[in-house]
Design a protein around this nucleic acid. Structure first.
Length: 267
DNA sequence: CATATGTCCTGAGAGC
DNA sequence: TGCTCTCAGGACATAT
C-alpha cells in the first residue's frame, strides 16, 4: 500500500470528499469538514508505514493515517465512485485520486497532528516493527509470555506488523507448533522465528501481498498480489504439506482466528 | 498486570 | 432458487 502511494509525493491536495454510500459510515476523525480544512492546499511530502497502518505526511506536519484492517484498500487513479469508496483525495499530480476503499467498513481514517503522532508512538500500543529489529528483540519481547506462540505473534504491542496468515506461514517454516507457549521456546527458536519473519514478510511485500480466493486484497492499481501462490499452509487445509508429502495440512482455531499447520513437521 | 472473549461490518461460499 | 450458517490479511473494549 505504501509503495502504491509513492507516486503521490510532491502533489498538492485539491479536494477531499466522501462519496455517498448506502453502507454504514466508517470511523473517520476528526470530521470531514475539519479534514478538508486541514488538507486542502497541503503538499504530500512522505508516505510512511506504522505497523499495519499507512501514513500520508503533509508539509503542514499533519499525517493522514489509514488503518485498513481486514478489508480496506488504498487505490490510486481508480474511478472514485466504486461501491465501498469511503474517502477520495484529489491531487494536482498524475497519481490521483487517492481512494480509501473498505468493503467491510472495519477500517479507520484519522488525521493526526505532530503532537498526536508523538503521543501515539509514546503510548506503547505498538511494539517495534518486525522488519526493524534483531532476533534478540524478538526473544526479549516474546519469551516471557505464556500464551501460545501463534496468537502472540499477532500481538502488535509486542512486535508490530505480523498478520494472521503470515504467522501461520512463519511457524511452518521453522517447524514450530502454533500451540506451544512462547515461554517454552529457546533463544535459538526465536532466532529462527525472526529469520523466517523477515523472509516471509519481505517476500510477501515483493509479491504485493496475498489475494485470497475471495479476491480480497488488491494493490493501488487494483491488481491482485501473488504471494498466495507461495503459501505453504495458509488456506491449504486438506492439501499435502510440501515437506511431508502425504501428510495433510490442518486448520485449527486459536483466539477465534484460523491457524494452519502440518501436524507432522510442526509436532 | 496478562490473557480471554465479544464486537464492529459486508459479502461469498457451502450445505440444505 | 433461497434460506441459514460460517468464515474472512484486525484490533478495540470489556471481562476475568
Amino acid at each position: 500500500m505504501r509503495r502504491g502511494l509513492l507516486g503521490c509525493v510532491g502533489s498538492v491536495v485539491l479536494k477531499v470528499s466522501k462519496p455517498r454510500s448506502r453502507y454504514r459510515p466508517i470511523r473517520i476523525s476528526p470530521n470531514l469538514s475539519a479534514i478538508q480544512r486541514r488538507l486542502r492546499g497541503k503538499r504530500v511530502v512522505e508516505i510512511e508505514r506504522l505497523g499495519k497502518r499507512v501514513v500520508v505526511r503533509f508539509d503542514s506536519g499533519d499525517r493522514l493515517v489509514l488503518q485498513p484492517k481486514m478489508a480496506g484498500l488504498v487505490l490510486v487513479g481508480q474511478p472514485p465512485n466504486l461501491p465501498h469508496s469511503r474517502l477520495v483525495i484529489d491531487l494536482d499530480g498524475p497519481a490521483t485520486p487517492i481512494i480509501y476503499w473498505d468493503q467491510r467498513g472495519l477500517g479507520t481514517v484519522q488525521l493526526w497532528s505532530p503532537v498526536e503522532y508523538e503521543l501515539f508512538l509514546a503510548s506503547g500500543q505498538l511494539g517495534p516493527d518486525a522488519l526493524a529489529v534483531d532476533s534478540m528483540t524478538f526473544f526479549q519481547r516474546f519469551a516471557s509470555s505464556h500464551r501460545p506462540v501463534k496468537p502472540a505473534l499477532l500481538d502488535q504491542s509486542r512486535i508490530a506488523g505480523i498478520g494472521n496468515l503470515y504467522a501461520s506461514e512463519i511457524l511452518h517454516r521453522v517447524k514450530i507448533n502454533p500451540r506451544v507457549p512462547c515461554s517454552s521456546l529457546t533463544r535459538a527458536h526465536w532466532k529462527r522465528i525472526h529469520r523466517a519473519t523477515l523472509d516471509v514478510l519481505l517476500t510477501a511485500i515483493e509479491y504485493e501481498g496475498s489475494t485470497l480466493s475471495d479476491g480480497s486484497y488488491r494493490n493501488a492499481l487494483d491488481q491482485p498480489g501473488s504471494y498466495q501462490n507461495a503459501h505453504r499452509v495458509y488456506d491449504r487445509e486438506g492439501k499435502p504439506c510440501f515437506r511431508c508429502k502425504n501428510v495433510l495440512i490442518e486448520r485449527i482455531v486459536q483466539a477465534q482466528r484460523s491457524t494452519f499447520l502440518c501436524p507432522r513437521c510442526q509436532k
